[in-house]
Amino acid sequence: MVREKRGNIHRTRLVVLSLAFLLILINPFLNYYLELNFIQGWYQSFGIGKLWFVSPLEGLESLLVSKQIFLPTLIGMLLPVCLAALLGSVYCSWLCPISFLHEILDFLRKILFRKKWLKDHLVLSRRTLWYALIGEIILSLILAAPLFVFLSPPGLVGREIMTAVFFHSLALEGVVVLLVLGMNLVTRRFFCRYFCPLGATLNIIGSRRKLRVIQDLSTCTECGLCDRACPLGLTPSLGMAQSAYCWNCGECTAVCKPGALEYQWGKKGDAETAAVVGQGDAG
């Protein structure tokens, strides 16, 4: 019975991802053809009635560049920031439309090449992610135009769908999405791993998250299945699931046969694991 529960995490995540994608896929049609304006926008800013969500990085950039405090932006950022602070960057793994497209691409790749596990061909230093965030913010401030807001792949997916429905054409900057998806064929989640400033922001916010994947060293058989399953190329077997880079997708808990990796609320791993985490971060 426990086994079934674990296999379900993968399936549940796919269902949530599909629903999140369906929402931004169907919503423009509702707005355009039925004039139902109850829900507007996509994951850059969502409006459900009077409840507003603003993506943390986009809101931060807007406040930084305009140098003015606008309270509704801050309030809109509140819920996503709380979610990230408690659950880590679950937005990336459970909601992001780019993640949905990545999953589809991975599925097709596995079928086409008849492989059970996918390889990463181009591996960079994980710290590139932080440099991408810093560079992006500084460049935005120099240009006085937030770069991520008009070139963010998750936002672009929503904008392309909306442009297609409203104006029956596609915007040119959609090639960014194609580039990101193309790089996924070389290295799984290449953009998410090394260059996504939004992911980096959520990782920083969620570095002290409550929900973590904790490894039980006494039951771990060191089979290494989790290391192969991790779409970010992390090594949960060495405790990297507790690092700031983990996005809590739960793929490693789904493949772990002895059940050594489990979601835990409010716990930190034992000292031994923490020591290895330090090494993992340095690498």
């Binding site: 507007q40 996509w42 807007s62 560049v65 003015q68």
Partner: peptide, 28 residues
């Protein structure tokens, strides 16, 4: 002066406009 900096391109104004007066600019 600050429009490009403040706007986060969420497209919500375009979606609610009942007359379709508002359109979105692209990367050009």
């Amino acid at each position: 002066e600050i429009f490009a900096g403040k706007c986060i391109r969420c497209g919500r104004c375009v979606e609610v406009c009942p007359y379709r007066s508002i359109s979105l600019l692209d990367i050009r």
